[in-house]
Nucleic acid binder design. Structure first.
Lengths: 202, 202
DNA sequence: CACTTTAGCTTACAACTGTTCGCTCATTCT
DNA sequence: AGAATGAGCGAACAGTTGTAAGCTAAAGTG
């Protein structure tokens, strides 16, 4: 096995170990370098061959989580083309992600208000990708100032995110309720915004 | 000084020490019993005379934070009577609380998605007080099913809370923008909900 | 082939953690 | 007055943490 290949492999082992240790009861901040190294099957000191410290690993995790989220978005767009219902499809796709990758979503959720400004910034950037893309869509569908499209997109993303957070602590039989509640809320926003000096395009 | 009096005094010293150590860079989970005891001016072991463990202290902090928040609500209601503008007054009052007691707000914000189910539950309950009260108000002002009033109240509280979170990382000159953005979002919700099969009362 | 590079290891250290034990001694109760 | 209570203390324990120093051995390089 090539050197670089092997290095990448244990790097992934570290990342996977970190992800797998995240849970409802264990946040990234409560992971220890030694524990992660142990699960990755390397000596504690070998960790430093790959990351300068835990913070660097953490930022990597946030990046990867953001990547997954963006892939999700692409997937949602495909579904929308076949399905038609924009809001419902988006929310359902998102909820599937949250319940299927709860550790990943929890990372973003927690570090969004965590103790590291760098982490908070990284998460905020990932979320802004969502917001920007949704705002773009809204601008296409309606005639309104950019500022308002952005404010509307932000509200929508927050509400969807929050529904995901609720789902983490709710029993699965409530997912349906959470989804339809969020759909209602987003429709209100859409109608309210459309009524306040904006017109549907076309 | 009476015995009970003195005990209550050092209990407060512990609570105050804990609050004062919370900051943007330090969450409750990263406080140590010893550090808190040190700042409270007692021996580490004396801590146990007042709390079984750090979790018990944490729940006490969440309770106190919730109390402050409810006092704030009462204060907002007084202002509304003199001022008239419900939404604007409520948000401005809330933003003043967030910026003036940022450590307290941060505690709620973080433990809402923290690693302890007990903490998450405690914060959720405090927030539900807000939601229930707002839903009550909405039911009085409009004719609509309880379910929808609650969904609307929840969306509003989430958006206001989120604006507070944004304020924590924003420079003071942006508070005005955050406030007016949130007002816009809440108005959209109100109008959207009113337009969807609901009528203003009276 | 000899030479360099480097991922991973072992050992070691100092700093901190939560918690137990047994003591003191001022307040309270009888 | 005498006994009981209980807040606070110091010493000590076993456990964990991050990280520094220096070695080994395999992969890459000329």
């Amino acid at each position: 096995m090539s050197r670089a290949e092997q290095k990448e492999r244990t790097r992934r082992a570290i990342i996977n170990a970190a992800f797998s240790q995240l849970s409802a009861d264990k946040s990234f901040a409560s992971l220890s370098l030694r524990e992660v190294a142990r699960e990755a099957g390397i000596a504690p000191t070998s960790f430093y061959r790959h990351f300068a410290d835990m913070d660097e690993l953490g930022l990597t995790l946030v990046d990867e989580a953001g990547l997954m989220l963006r892939q999700l978005m692409r997937q949602a767009r495909q579904r929308i083309e076949k399905n038609g219902s924009v809001i419902r499809t988006s929310i359902e796709t998102f909820m599937e992600f949250v319940t299927g990758n709860s550790n990943v979503f929890r990372l973003l959720l927690r570090e969004r208000s965590g103790t590291s400004a760098a982490f908070r910034g990284a998460v905020a950037r990932e979320i802004q990708h969502f917001v920007a893309e949704l705002a773009e869509y809204l601008r296409k569908e309606t005639i309104c100032p950019d500022e308002l499209a952005r404010a509307q997109a932000e509200a929508m993303v927050i509400l969807v995110f929050h529904a995901g957070a609720d789902a983490l602590d709710a029993p699965p039989e409530q997912y349906g309720y959470l989804t339809s509640r969020t759909i209602t809320q987003l429709r209100w926003l859409t109608h309210g915004a459309a009524g306040s000096g904006r017109k549907p395009k076309g």
